[in-house]
Design a protein around this nucleic acid. Structure first.
Length: 698
RNA sequence: GCCGCGGUGGUGAAAUGGUAUACACGAAGGCCUUAAGAGCCUUUAUCCGCAAGGGUGUGAGAGUUCGACUCUCUCCCGCGGCACCA
């Protein structure tokens, strides 16, 4: 058989051998560690760093990291100095919960997870700069997370406040609004309770407008921008005074249809009503869950009437918990003729419904309201950076002196969450007893730790830093490498990490930390850390997100062992568009193995030096379409085009018994970002062969 | 309820308004082999037909167009986000 003659005498494709060899060479020669100070064409290829808490990396993680790495490798081949760092977001509730589950101290577990995760990541063949890894639980790192907290405090952007907050009874800590999904804890899915507690908040609402407006000037997946806009929730309206009570409305033209007024149970004026009915109602509604409140509207009449300034009629004042204190003024004018919720309430309590002219012109003040709330930053847990604040009975809250940072997280035996509304650190006077930085008198440290999302809000700055002890980030490098050229991550962080890190960036910017006025004001785009963000799809298994509890976790290790990382990389990318993700199944992985084996065999078999016009055209078409596909992260079609190109080369070779190696070289180069090890090996062999031929001639 | 994304062979999926199903998986038949594996070749949307050939086909229905998977409208289904935000 002529057609299979080419496989004879060709060394078999042995991914295990090749991959181990090149991973070693790459790391030893530091080819993926660009010089951050002298790089000519800096390209910051950033991928969201992982939570390492689970049983290691699953194929869903690998899909995300590999897809991001392919883009980085593509950019590197185009001549950029690509910086592609990796680290671990290993502080926080998720890691601590895992430590609880396996019954190991979080610090000890972190070491195990770190080792395992980095081993797995190395095996994927991604072009990481392994000399610049960052772990958020490293005291050298969280020293600066604490420093950040202090900068926000000094700028008046961190404050303490008593407010009804989300409390997860299972994680035994408060949560930020962003971490509550359908009334459930983001991490453990327990129903969240409302508790009235004094907590630390970051004033992110002060940045609502900038966070919103910035979205229009950045190149992000539209669905992510929409989610963020929706979360910020800007609405324009008016504040109208109804007999001494300010109400917020977006429909002032309906004010003449207002037949009653409703106060939130938390409204300050409610305290003036002392009837038993009111007191009972406020008590009951405070203890209700959000779900219960939504089920059926309820309220209580205060006994008081006020005058509707538009109709001059007396209208009753009610208290009802369908009005929220956290939005607007905590009081509304109810227009049952126009508003469904008001109508429902009016019908239940037999309040008159009157038509509105839709042209009322009340006297009011124009205002803008946001759905966004301040960021609740404290957590009553152990595994996080202690909030660097000291409470003095004389001087109030004082930040820890910056030269005293970090406030080290002590090694505790009783580190598990208490559920008392306090962190385990609160049981340790040796930790919290200290002196006031101002008056030197006895004082108490804050015992709560900060939210994990503060750790991850600035890690991309840490990657480019040096002198870990002296500064949080390196200023000339910030100018050189930021904003991040390409940020790739999961869509699940649309309103968490991506909002918080933009906020922290803006704060640092305003505080002058990125002030390079000597070099001229940075170009526009500097108000944003990530000018380009690509949201990859998620790999699920049997229709659900991979998790140990569901028993559907697929770990890449066995596949890498059997087929090699190159095959798994290509296979994962070939399943569909990178922004779609999909259900993982391994049918077809053999097919990808076959493709790489064939390509390997062809490249090492061919001989001949004649060009062919038809092949030239095909080659250039392939170069064009693969390049475009790579730029758009359409890896599935890039691979399809490469397979077509291979098929063309193969049939030409079997037909003519010759093929100029230049065509194979193109195949190798185009395939390189996807299958880096195999192509590196082939490229070296082609080069060696070329130089042998050259030497012979000479 | 509002916003977004999607619906194409047995499967994963392609397709600047121009031959629908590229590329692959699976399946069937064949070659090679003592055998197994690997490899190679052919076929593979569907219906009618021995064949040549013909009919039907991109969730449903309408519209724009010489021409629609693609654009517009009205629905249906699935996934994701937001949701008593006044």
């Amino acid at each position: 058989m002529a057609k299979n003659s080419l496989k004879l005498k060709i060394e078999k494709y042995n991914p295990a051998k090749i991959e181990a060899k090149w991973q070693g060479v790459w790391e030893e020669k530091k080819i993926y560690s660009p010089n951050l100070d002298t790089a000519k064409r800096p390209f910051y290829n950033l991928m969201m760093f992982p939570y390492p808490s689970a049983e290691g990396m699953h194929v869903g993680n690998m899909y995300a990291f590999t897809g991001a790495d392919i883009y980085g490798r593509f950019k590197r081949m185009q001549g950029n100095d690509v910086f592609e760092p990796i680290g671990l977001d290993g502080f926080g509730i998720h890691s601590e919960n895992y430590a609880i589950k396996v019954g190991r101290h979080p610090k000890e577990q972190a070491k195990i997870s770190e080792k395992n995760f980095y081993r797995q990541l190395r095996a994927t063949g991604n072009g990481y700069d392994w000399s610049r890894t960052v772990e958020t639980y490293d005291p050298k790192y969280y020293k600066w997370t604490q420093w950040l907290f202090i900068q926000l405090f000094k700028a008046g952007l961190a404050y303490r406040s008593k407010a009804p907050v989300n409390f997860c009874p299972s994680c035994k800590t408060v949560l930020a609004d962003e971490q509550v999904i359908d009334d459930k804890c983001e991490r453990c899915s327990s129903i969240v309770e409302k508790k009235e507690l004094e907590q630390w908040f970051f004033k992110i609402t002060k940045y609502a407008d900038r966070l919103l407006n910035g979205l229009s000037q950045i190149d992000w997946a539209e669905r992510i921008k929409i989610a963020q806009r929706q979360w910020i929730g800007r609405s324009e309206g008016m504040i109208i005074n109804f007999g001494g009570i300010d109400v917020f409305t977006t429909r002032p033209e309906t004010a003449d249809g207002a037949t009653f007024l409703v106060l939130s149970p938390q409204h300050p004026k409610v305290k003036e009503f002392k009837s038993k009915e009111v007191i009972d109602y406020v008590k009951i509604s405070t203890n209700k869950s959000d779900e219960e409140r939504r089920k059926e509207k309820s309220g209580v009449f205060t006994g008081e009437y006020i005058i509707n300034p538009l109709t001059k009629k007396k209208i009753p004042v009610w208290i009802a918990d369908y009005v929220l204190m956290g939005y607007g003024t905590g009081a509304i004018m109810a227009v049952p003729a126009e508003d469904e919720r008001d109508r429902e309430f009016a019908e239940k309590y037999k309040i008159p419904i009157e038509r509105t002219s839709l042209s009322a012109k009340p006297v009011g003040k124009k205002v803008v309201n946001y759905h966004l709330r301040d960021w609740l930053i404290s957590r009553q847990r152990y595994w996080g950076p202690p909030i660097p604040m000291i409470n003095c009975s004389k001087c109030g809250w004082q930040p820890v002196a910056e030269d005293q940072l970090p406030v080290l997280l002590p090694d505790l035996k009783d580190w598990k969450p208490l559920g008392t509304g306090k962190s385990p650190l609160a049981n340790h006077p040796e930790f919290y007893e200290t002196n006031c930085p101002k008056c030197k008198g006895p004082a108490k440290r804050e015992t709560d730790v900060s939210d994990t999302f503060l750790d991850s809000a600035w890690y991309f700055l840490r990657y480019i830093g040096t002198e870990l002890d002296k500064k949080p980030f390196e200023e000339p490098r910030v100018k050189k490498w930021l904003p991040v050229s390409m940020y790739i991550g999961g869509p699940e962080h649309a309103v968490l990490h991506l909002l918080y890190s933009r906020f922290i960036w803006m704060v640092l910017y305003d505080l002058g930390y990125f002030d390079f006025s000597s070099k001229g004001r940075p170009a526009s785009g500097w108000d944003e850390p990530f000018t380009k963000f690509y949201a990859h799809g998620l790999i699920i298994k049997d229709g659900a997100k991979m998790s140990k509890s569901k028993g559907n976790v697929v770990v890449p290790d066995a596949y890498i062992k059997k087929y090699g990382a190159d095959v798994l990389r290509c296979y994962l990318m070939f399943t569909g568009p990178f922004n779609m993700g999909g259900d993982f199944r391994d049918s077809g992985i053999e097919g990808m193995f076959r493709f790489l084996k064939r390509a390997w065999t062809l490249v090492l078999s061919v001989k001949g030096k004649d060009a062919n016009p038809a092949l030239d055209i095909f080659m250039h078409k392939t170069i064009k379409s693969v390049t475009e596909d790579m730029e758009n992260l359409n890896y599935n079609t890039a691979i399809a085009h490469l397979m077509e190109y291979y098929n063309e080369l193969y049939s030409f070779y079997t037909k003519h018994k010759m093929l100029n190696v230049i065509y194979c070289k193109t195949l190798v180069l185009l395939l390189a970002p996807l299958a880096p090890h195999m192509t590196e090996e082939l490229f070296q062999r082609i080069k060696n062969q070329e130089s042998r031929i050259k030497n012979k001639k000479e």
